[in-house]
Protein backbone atom coordinates (compact mmCIF):
# COMPACT_ATOMS: atom_id res chain seq x y z
CA UNK A 1 0.00 0.00 0.00
CA UNK A 2 2.82 2.31 0.94
CA UNK A 3 4.62 1.59 -2.29
CA UNK A 4 1.40 2.06 -4.20
CA UNK A 5 0.99 5.54 -2.66
CA UNK A 6 4.55 6.40 -3.50
CA UNK A 7 4.13 5.25 -7.10
CA UNK A 8 0.86 7.14 -7.36
CA UNK A 9 2.59 10.36 -6.33
CA UNK A 10 5.39 9.66 -8.80
CA UNK A 11 2.82 9.01 -11.48
CA UNK A 12 0.99 12.25 -10.77
CA UNK A 13 4.27 14.14 -10.78
CA UNK A 14 5.29 12.78 -14.18
CA UNK A 15 1.71 13.17 -15.35
CA UNK A 16 1.74 16.86 -14.46
CA UNK A 17 4.75 17.42 -16.75
CA UNK A 18 2.85 15.60 -19.49
CA UNK A 19 -0.28 17.62 -18.73
CA UNK A 20 1.57 20.94 -19.08
CA UNK A 21 3.20 19.68 -22.28
CA UNK A 22 -0.12 18.55 -23.75
CA UNK A 23 -1.82 21.78 -22.68
CA UNK A 24 0.66 23.82 -24.73
CA UNK A 25 0.06 21.71 -27.82
CA UNK A 26 -3.70 21.81 -27.30
CA UNK A 27 -3.80 25.63 -26.96
CA UNK A 28 -2.66 26.09 -30.55
CA UNK A 29 -4.65 23.15 -31.88
CA UNK A 30 -7.92 24.30 -30.36
CA UNK A 31 -7.54 27.88 -31.62
CA UNK A 32 -6.17 27.24 -35.11
CA UNK A 33 -6.53 23.54 -35.83
CA UNK A 34 -2.75 23.28 -36.24
CA UNK A 35 -0.96 20.28 -34.79
CA UNK A 36 2.45 21.91 -34.39
CA UNK A 37 5.04 19.13 -34.46
CA UNK A 38 7.85 21.65 -34.07
CA UNK A 39 6.46 22.12 -30.53
CA UNK A 40 8.95 19.48 -29.35
CA UNK A 41 11.84 21.68 -30.47
CA UNK A 42 10.69 24.31 -27.96
CA UNK A 43 11.66 21.80 -25.26
CA UNK A 44 15.08 21.41 -26.91
CA UNK A 45 15.45 25.19 -27.01
CA UNK A 46 14.78 25.30 -23.25
CA UNK A 47 17.44 22.62 -22.78
CA UNK A 48 20.15 24.42 -24.76
CA UNK A 49 19.29 27.78 -23.19
CA UNK A 50 19.67 26.24 -19.74
CA UNK A 51 22.86 24.48 -20.78
CA UNK A 52 24.54 27.66 -22.05
CA UNK A 53 23.21 29.81 -19.20
CA UNK A 54 24.44 27.45 -16.49
CA UNK A 55 27.77 27.06 -18.33
CA UNK A 56 28.09 30.85 -18.21
CA UNK A 57 27.61 30.70 -14.47
CA UNK A 58 23.95 31.66 -14.21
CA UNK A 59 22.09 30.17 -11.25
CA UNK A 60 19.58 27.41 -12.10
CA UNK A 61 16.48 29.53 -11.57
CA UNK A 62 17.78 32.29 -13.88
CA UNK A 63 18.65 29.67 -16.52
CA UNK A 64 15.15 28.24 -16.19
CA UNK A 65 13.59 31.70 -16.58
CA UNK A 66 15.67 32.35 -19.69
CA UNK A 67 14.68 28.95 -21.06
CA UNK A 68 10.97 29.74 -20.67
CA UNK A 69 11.44 33.20 -22.23
CA UNK A 70 13.27 31.81 -25.27
CA UNK A 71 10.66 29.08 -25.73
CA UNK A 72 7.90 31.70 -25.73
CA UNK A 73 9.77 33.88 -28.24
CA UNK A 74 10.48 30.87 -30.48
CA UNK A 75 6.81 29.91 -30.36
CA UNK A 76 5.76 33.41 -31.46
CA UNK A 77 8.33 33.33 -34.27
CA UNK A 78 6.94 30.01 -35.48
CA UNK A 79 3.53 31.61 -35.89
CA UNK A 80 4.84 34.80 -37.52
CA UNK A 81 7.34 33.20 -39.88
CA UNK A 82 5.67 29.91 -40.75
CA UNK A 83 2.02 29.52 -39.86
CA UNK A 84 0.73 33.03 -40.55
CA UNK A 85 1.96 33.06 -44.17
CA UNK A 86 0.29 29.65 -44.59
CA UNK A 87 -3.11 30.81 -43.29
CA UNK A 88 -5.92 28.99 -45.02
CA UNK A 89 -3.74 25.99 -45.89
CA UNK A 90 -5.08 22.50 -45.20
CA UNK A 91 -4.48 20.59 -41.97
CA UNK A 92 -2.04 18.23 -43.70
CA UNK A 93 -0.09 21.09 -45.31
CA UNK A 94 0.37 22.72 -41.93
CA UNK A 95 1.27 19.40 -40.34
CA UNK A 96 4.03 18.79 -42.89
CA UNK A 97 5.23 22.37 -42.64
CA UNK A 98 5.64 21.85 -38.90
CA UNK A 99 7.48 18.54 -39.53
CA UNK A 100 9.81 20.41 -41.87
CA UNK A 101 10.42 23.11 -39.27
CA UNK A 102 11.08 20.47 -36.62
CA UNK A 103 13.67 18.73 -38.81
CA UNK A 104 15.27 22.04 -39.83
CA UNK A 105 15.68 23.07 -36.17
CA UNK A 106 17.19 19.70 -35.28
CA UNK A 107 19.66 20.20 -38.14
CA UNK A 108 20.57 23.63 -36.81
CA UNK A 109 21.14 22.25 -33.29
CA UNK A 110 23.31 19.46 -34.72
CA UNK A 111 25.41 21.77 -36.90
CA UNK A 112 25.63 24.81 -34.67
CA UNK A 113 26.02 23.08 -31.30
CA UNK A 114 26.80 19.38 -31.41
CA UNK A 115 25.16 16.07 -32.26
CA UNK A 116 26.23 14.84 -28.83
CA UNK A 117 24.41 15.23 -25.55
CA UNK A 118 25.15 18.25 -23.37
CA UNK A 119 24.78 17.89 -19.62
CA UNK A 120 22.78 20.46 -17.66
CA UNK A 121 23.99 21.09 -14.13
CA UNK A 122 21.10 20.86 -11.66
CA UNK A 123 21.19 21.88 -7.99
CA UNK A 124 22.00 19.08 -5.57
CA UNK A 125 18.75 19.57 -3.69
CA UNK A 126 16.97 17.95 -6.67
CA UNK A 127 18.30 14.54 -5.71
CA UNK A 128 17.29 14.77 -2.05
CA UNK A 129 14.22 13.14 -0.54
CA UNK A 130 11.41 14.39 1.62
CA UNK A 131 9.81 12.08 4.14
CA UNK A 132 6.15 12.55 4.95
CA UNK A 133 5.05 9.97 7.52
CA UNK A 134 6.24 6.70 6.04
CA UNK A 135 6.34 7.94 2.45
CA UNK A 136 9.66 9.00 0.96
CA UNK A 137 9.32 11.26 -2.06
CA UNK A 138 11.98 12.94 -4.19
CA UNK A 139 12.26 16.71 -3.83
CA UNK A 140 12.02 17.05 -7.61
CA UNK A 141 8.84 14.98 -7.68
CA UNK A 142 7.12 17.35 -5.26
CA UNK A 143 8.56 20.51 -6.84
CA UNK A 144 7.33 19.31 -10.24
CA UNK A 145 3.83 18.71 -8.91
CA UNK A 146 3.66 22.13 -7.26
CA UNK A 147 5.07 24.06 -10.23
CA UNK A 148 2.88 22.28 -12.78
CA UNK A 149 -0.30 22.62 -10.73
CA UNK A 150 0.40 26.29 -10.00
CA UNK A 151 1.05 27.04 -13.68
CA UNK A 152 -2.13 25.32 -14.78
CA UNK A 153 -4.08 27.08 -12.02
CA UNK A 154 -2.83 30.48 -13.16
CA UNK A 155 -3.72 29.63 -16.76
CA UNK A 156 -7.19 28.48 -15.73
CA UNK A 157 -7.83 31.76 -13.89
CA UNK A 158 -6.52 33.76 -16.85
CA UNK A 159 -8.70 31.86 -19.32
CA UNK A 160 -11.74 32.06 -17.07
CA UNK A 161 -11.65 35.68 -15.95
CA UNK A 162 -9.60 37.82 -18.34
CA UNK A 163 -10.89 39.46 -21.48
CA UNK A 164 -8.16 37.84 -23.60
CA UNK A 165 -8.89 34.46 -22.05
CA UNK A 166 -12.56 34.76 -22.94
CA UNK A 167 -11.65 35.72 -26.50
CA UNK A 168 -9.34 32.72 -26.76
CA UNK A 169 -12.01 30.36 -25.48
CA UNK A 170 -14.47 31.79 -27.99
CA UNK A 171 -11.93 31.55 -30.81
CA UNK A 172 -11.38 27.90 -29.95
CA UNK A 173 -15.10 27.25 -30.40
CA UNK A 174 -15.59 29.31 -33.57
CA UNK A 175 -12.94 31.69 -34.89
CA UNK A 176 -15.10 33.31 -37.59
CA UNK A 177 -17.93 34.17 -35.21
CA UNK A 178 -15.37 35.49 -32.72
CA UNK A 179 -13.98 37.77 -35.42
CA UNK A 180 -17.53 38.96 -36.14
CA UNK A 181 -17.55 40.21 -32.52
CA UNK A 182 -14.63 42.49 -33.40
CA UNK A 183 -11.91 40.30 -31.91
CA UNK A 184 -8.66 40.58 -33.89
CA UNK A 185 -7.76 37.15 -35.21
CA UNK A 186 -4.03 37.89 -35.29
CA UNK A 187 -4.00 38.96 -31.66
CA UNK A 188 -5.86 35.91 -30.38
CA UNK A 189 -3.66 33.58 -32.41
CA UNK A 190 -0.45 35.21 -31.19
CA UNK A 191 -1.80 34.96 -27.65
CA UNK A 192 -2.37 31.23 -28.12
CA UNK A 193 1.18 30.76 -29.43
CA UNK A 194 2.61 32.81 -26.55
CA UNK A 195 0.82 30.67 -23.96
CA UNK A 196 1.80 27.53 -25.86
CA UNK A 197 5.45 28.66 -25.74
CA UNK A 198 5.34 29.49 -22.03
CA UNK A 199 3.81 26.09 -21.24
CA UNK A 200 6.45 24.37 -23.40
CA UNK A 201 9.02 26.41 -21.47
CA UNK A 202 7.73 25.32 -18.06
CA UNK A 203 7.38 21.70 -19.16
CA UNK A 204 10.85 21.95 -20.71
CA UNK A 205 12.43 23.13 -17.46
CA UNK A 206 10.76 20.29 -15.53
CA UNK A 207 11.80 17.82 -18.23
CA UNK A 208 15.43 18.98 -18.25
CA UNK A 209 15.58 18.92 -14.45
CA UNK A 210 14.74 15.20 -14.73
CA UNK A 211 16.83 14.16 -17.73
CA UNK A 212 19.72 16.59 -16.98
CA UNK A 213 20.89 16.50 -20.57
CA UNK A 214 19.94 17.89 -23.95
CA UNK A 215 20.52 16.57 -27.47
CA UNK A 216 19.34 17.88 -30.86
CA UNK A 217 16.50 15.33 -30.77
CA UNK A 218 15.47 15.94 -27.16
CA UNK A 219 12.12 17.27 -28.41
CA UNK A 220 10.97 13.99 -29.95
CA UNK A 221 9.74 12.16 -26.85
CA UNK A 222 7.98 15.25 -25.41
CA UNK A 223 6.05 16.00 -28.62
CA UNK A 224 5.12 12.33 -28.95
CA UNK A 225 3.81 12.26 -25.40
CA UNK A 226 2.00 15.57 -25.79
CA UNK A 227 0.38 14.24 -28.96
CA UNK A 228 -0.70 11.01 -27.23
CA UNK A 229 -2.12 12.94 -24.28
CA UNK A 230 -4.02 15.35 -26.54
CA UNK A 231 -5.55 12.53 -28.60
CA UNK A 232 -6.31 10.50 -25.49
CA UNK A 233 -8.07 13.44 -23.85
CA UNK A 234 -9.96 14.33 -27.01
CA UNK A 235 -8.48 16.41 -29.81
CA UNK A 236 -9.52 20.01 -29.32
CA UNK A 237 -10.44 19.70 -25.65
CA UNK A 238 -8.26 21.71 -23.26
CA UNK A 239 -9.30 19.88 -20.06
CA UNK A 240 -8.99 16.65 -22.04
CA UNK A 241 -5.32 17.36 -22.77
CA UNK A 242 -4.63 17.75 -19.05
CA UNK A 243 -6.48 14.57 -18.13
CA UNK A 244 -4.77 12.70 -20.98
CA UNK A 245 -1.39 13.88 -19.68
CA UNK A 246 -2.10 12.65 -16.15
CA UNK A 247 -3.42 9.29 -17.33
CA UNK A 248 -0.39 8.66 -19.50
CA UNK A 249 2.01 9.71 -16.73
CA UNK A 250 0.41 7.44 -14.14
CA UNK A 251 0.23 4.61 -16.68
CA UNK A 252 3.93 4.93 -17.46
CA UNK A 253 5.01 4.94 -13.83
CA UNK A 254 2.79 1.99 -12.91
CA UNK A 255 3.94 -0.10 -15.85
CA UNK A 256 7.52 0.65 -14.86
CA UNK A 257 6.89 -0.31 -11.26
CA UNK A 258 4.69 -3.36 -11.62
CA UNK A 259 5.62 -5.02 -14.92
CA UNK A 260 7.65 -8.22 -14.63
CA UNK A 261 11.34 -7.43 -15.21
CA UNK A 262 11.38 -9.16 -18.60
CA UNK A 263 8.58 -6.93 -19.92
CA UNK A 264 9.98 -3.58 -18.78
CA UNK A 265 11.66 -2.95 -22.18
CA UNK A 266 8.15 -3.04 -23.68
CA UNK A 267 6.82 -0.48 -21.23
CA UNK A 268 6.28 2.31 -23.77
CA UNK A 269 4.76 -0.06 -26.32
CA UNK A 270 2.37 -1.38 -23.69
CA UNK A 271 1.38 2.14 -22.68
CA UNK A 272 0.55 2.85 -26.32
CA UNK A 273 -1.46 -0.38 -26.57
CA UNK A 274 -3.46 0.74 -23.54
CA UNK A 275 -4.07 4.11 -25.21
CA UNK A 276 -5.16 2.34 -28.42
CA UNK A 277 -7.66 0.25 -26.48
CA UNK A 278 -9.05 3.37 -24.77
CA UNK A 279 -9.40 5.10 -28.12
CA UNK A 280 -11.05 2.03 -29.61
CA UNK A 281 -13.66 2.23 -26.88
CA UNK A 282 -14.00 6.02 -27.11
CA UNK A 283 -12.86 7.17 -30.56
CA UNK A 284 -13.48 10.84 -29.75
CA UNK A 285 -11.15 10.69 -26.73
CA UNK A 286 -12.07 10.99 -23.08
CA UNK A 287 -13.32 14.60 -23.21
CA UNK A 288 -13.92 14.74 -26.96
CA UNK A 289 -16.91 16.65 -28.17
CA UNK A 290 -19.87 14.42 -28.80
CA UNK A 291 -22.22 17.34 -29.10
CA UNK A 292 -21.42 20.55 -30.91
CA UNK A 293 -20.51 23.28 -28.44
CA UNK A 294 -21.74 25.99 -30.77
CA UNK A 295 -25.51 26.16 -30.93
Amino acid sequence: MLEFMQQLINGFSLGSIYAVLALGLAMVYSTLGILNFAYGELITIVGYTMYFATQAGAPFLLAAGLGITFAAIASLLMQLALFRPLRGASFVTLLFASFALSQALQGVFRQAISPRARGIAVPEIFSTFVTIGDIRIGFLTIATLIIALTSMGILAVFMRYSRSGLQMRAAAIDLTTTRLMGVRANRVILGAFAISGILAGIAGVLWMARTTQVTPTSGFTPILIAFIAVVLGGLGSIPGAVIGGYIFGVLEVFLQAYLPIGLVPFQFAMALIAVSVLLYLRPEGLMGKRIEEKV
Partner: peptide
Amino acid sequence: GRSIFGAL
Protein backbone atom coordinates in the same frame (compact mmCIF):
# COMPACT_ATOMS: atom_id res chain seq x y z
CA GLY B 1 -28.58 30.04 -36.83
CA ARG B 2 -27.54 32.83 -34.40
CA SER B 3 -24.01 31.51 -33.73
CA ILE B 4 -24.37 31.79 -29.97
CA PHE B 5 -21.45 30.31 -28.03
CA GLY B 6 -23.44 27.59 -26.30
CA ALA B 7 -20.58 26.52 -24.03
CA LEU B 8 -20.10 30.07 -22.71
